[in-house]
């Protein structure tokens, strides 16, 4: 651990001579830059997806929690009386903050997307809807259902759990998938940088042999490669992050419905999260290159 810390601090101290012992390798340099850039770009999108999903799940949870709908199906002549009775029951139920019967205009507006604007709601046996708002403490849903069943058999209480839960679950899983994608992206970056580092180490076998011969320690030799790959990964990831952020910035902005497509992006302090991508890429490159270098050097005497 102490060795890793010393090697990490050495990155910033630098040793221009040590950096010069490894000849410039165009191929691995370009590969590392491109890999880090592409992966950082994808990581920014995965991060945006994950944060947007989390936001969406939270929005849905907040918007739908605390509200319920009571649907009363009754013959037309009994509808008003049953509605009044239902409102009285609700007003007597602890935990219900407000209960309001929807007006015919509001009910028409709800049905309008399916039946058009000229639907004669009054002449159709459409159930009466009552919007229920619960107070902070919440109400006993099972108890209320039992009472409604006994006094108003035609009333159905829908607290939205049935369709809210799968939506929130789906958004939650999308969020987890986003984080998993970020982990995979960094894993793939580590694997690619390890391959590039191995290629560089193999191409510089003679350099390593000369350095061992003149008394260079493993830490010195590995450090020369580690510094180079870490700085390249940092630079590539910084570029990828900037491009990713610009791409997100120019996505269509979130609409009122805040669907997952239009809501993909960052809000508020979330814009700072992508700034973590380049240092993380540097860290991945640091460990990947050091591991590769130490493995190769361990095989030499």
């Amino acid at each position: 651990m102490k060795d890793y810390l010393a090697a990490f601090l050495d990155l910033f101290g630098g040793d221009s001579q040590a950096d010069r012992v490894v000849p410039p390798t165009g191929f691995t340099a370009r590969l590392t830059l491109f890999t880090a850039g592409a992966m950082a770009f994808l990581a920014v999108f995965a991060l945006a997806l994950s944060l947007a999903s989390g936001r969406l799940a939270s929005n849905w949870r907040d918007a739908l929690a605390g509200s319920a709908t009571l649907r009363i199906s009754a013959p037309a002549e009994q509808m008003a009386a049953q509605t009044e009775r239902a409102l009285r029951i609700l007003s007597e139920t602890p935990g219900v903050a407000e209960a309001r019967a929807l007006s015919p205009e509001e009910q028409r507006a709800l049905l309008e997307p399916w039946f058009g604007p000229d639907l004669p709601v009054e002449s159709l046996p459409v159930p009466q809807l009552i919007e229920v708002r619960e107070s902070g403490q919440g109400y006993d849903g099972d108890g209320l259902r039992l009472r409604l069943q006994a006094e108003l058999p035609g009333a159905v209480l829908d607290d939205h759990t049935r369709w809210r839960r799968p939506l929130v679950q789906a958004a939650g899983r999308l969020k987890i998938l986003g984080w998993a994608a970020i982990l995979l992206i960094f894993g793939a970056m580590g694997a690619m940088i390890t391959l590039a580092a191995n290629a560089a180490l193999a191409a510089n076998a003679q350099v390593i042999q000369v350095l061992r011969l003149i008394g260079a320690t493993d830490a010195y030799i590995a450090g020369a490669f580690v510094r180079r790959f870490t700085l390249r990964a940092l630079a590539g990831a910084a570029l990828g992050m900037v491009v990713g952020l610009l791409a997100i910035l120019f996505l269509p902005s979130a609409s009122a419905e805040a669907s997952i497509l239009t809501g993909l992006g960052f809000q508020g302090l979330h814009w700072f999260w992508p700034l973590l991508v380049p240092p993380l890429a540097g860290l991945v490159a640091f460990f990947a290159t050091r591991w590769a270098a130490m493995r190769v050097l361990g095989g030499l005497r």
Partner: peptide, 9 residues
């Protein structure tokens, strides 16, 4: 390994 490096100096 570090000791070998030192000896080679």
């Amino acid at each position: 390994r570090d000791g070998i490096a030192m000896a080679r100096r």
